[in-house]
């Protein structure tokens, strides 16, 4: 049997988050799983039909307690001590990454972050994770338990099975808190957020200057999308760094990622490789981007893009 303590999260609608449903699917792929899902704060109503063994709510702790999750970490650390699971599974969200690392180091546990695959081999847990910006995969055997594992978004299809778990609620303990959030400031942005966009139109070194980004912006507008850029284009000052996609920029996973004049260096691909479909427009047929793309046009963007934009507008009209 594999006992799993899964750290659940709710989304902005108060439902069990998609990333937590993915983690449930990952947990269920292990041998004879016994799954407990715990929520910092009250469990969402939809948790009561998850296909797991039990649900534990740590009442009165908000999921965003102090912005750095000191309270949640302390609560989950006590649960790990009392339950002694084989695997503590979290999503690689802001919350999961931070709490996962803190838990592992606080209690000197094995830690595997950002995993894309979990399995059992001869009774031991085996994990796979991308390294070097996705250029390589590393496979590890986890020798000691409990092991803390964070799971990359999209690595598993969300679990759709239903069940009737036992439901329990525990009272939070009091802890010494170090840091306090004194204010939360919302920043408004023009148009669709790059990270949320269903379509991203990105430009790179091949554009040759700042002006072509206005064509990219027109195309993004026509597709209700957002504009991205490679590091080379940002470093050249053609567009603000807030548009940068890649290892040292933003990670995006739109339905369509249109790469214009981008060679596809691994540092860039690390930020867009989980897109549903990559579309490449580049005049160099040997560019790495064509190895990653589903659709491509080998040609000069100055000639390809205007007719592409015109056709998109016609189709959208």
């Amino acid at each position: 049997m594999t006992s799993i303590l899964l750290i659940g999260e709710s989304d902005e609608h108060g439902e069990v988050s998609q990333s937590t449903l993915q983690a449930v699917a990952a947990a269920k792929s292990l041998s004879e799983p016994n799954i407990t899902v715990t929520f910092s704060g009250d469990a969402p109503a939809s948790a009561s039909s998850l296909s797991v063994d039990s649900i534990v709510s740590i009442s009165a702790v908000s999921n965003s307690d102090d912005g750095i999750y000191e309270q949640s970490t302390a609560e989950i650390a006590s649960l790990v001590t009392s339950n002694n699971p084989d695997v503590v599974l979290l999503s690689k969200s802001d919350f999961g990454s931070l709490v996962g690392a803190r838990l592992a180091f606080r209690s000197d546990l094995s830690f595997a972050a950002d995993c894309t695959e979990l399995s059992n081999e001869n009774g031991a847990l085996v994990v796979t994770r991308p390294v070097y910006g996705g250029s390589a995969l590393a496979e590890f055997i986890v020798a000691s338990t409990p092991a803390v594992v964070t799971l990359r978004a999209g690595a598993y299809e969300p679990s759709t099975e239903t069940g009737s778990p036992a439901i329990e609620s525990i009272e939070p303990q009091s802890i010494e808190q170090f840091a306090y959030v004194t204010d939360t400031v919302a920043e408004t942005r023009d148009g669709v957020r790059l990270e949320d966009a269903g379509v991203v139109v990105s430009g790179g070194r091949g554009l040759g200057g700042p002006e072509p980004f206005s064509v990219l912006k027109d195309l993004a507008n026509a597709l209700d999308g957002a504009v991205g850029a490679s590091r080379a284009a940002c470093d050249a000052g053609w567009i603000d760094h807030s548009h940068q996609v890649g290892l040292t920029g933003k990670s995006v996973s739109p339905d369509v990622y249109i790469a214009v004049g981008i060679s596809g260096a691994s540092q860039h691909m690390a930020g867009c490789s989980s897109s549903r479909a990559i579309v490449a427009i580049n005049k160099d047929a040997d560019s790495n981007i064509f190895k990653e793309a589903r659709f491509g046009v080998v040609g000069d963007w100055e000639k390809v893009l205007p007719s592409f934009l015109a056709s998109v507008r016609e189709l959208k009209a």
Binding site: L109, S110, F111, A112, V126, V127, V131, S135, A136, L137, A138, E139, F140, I141, V142, A143, S144, A280, F290, K291, E292, A293, R294, F295, G296, V297, V298
Partner: peptide, 21 residues
């Protein structure tokens, strides 16, 4: 180390680009 690295490899890309001409 607590984790034992058993394999490090470059994943095979099974993506086949469809070039539009």
């Amino acid at each position: 180390p607590k984790l034992k690295l058993t394999k490090l490899y470059v994943p095979e890309s099974n993506q086949q680009v469809e070039l539009i001409e």
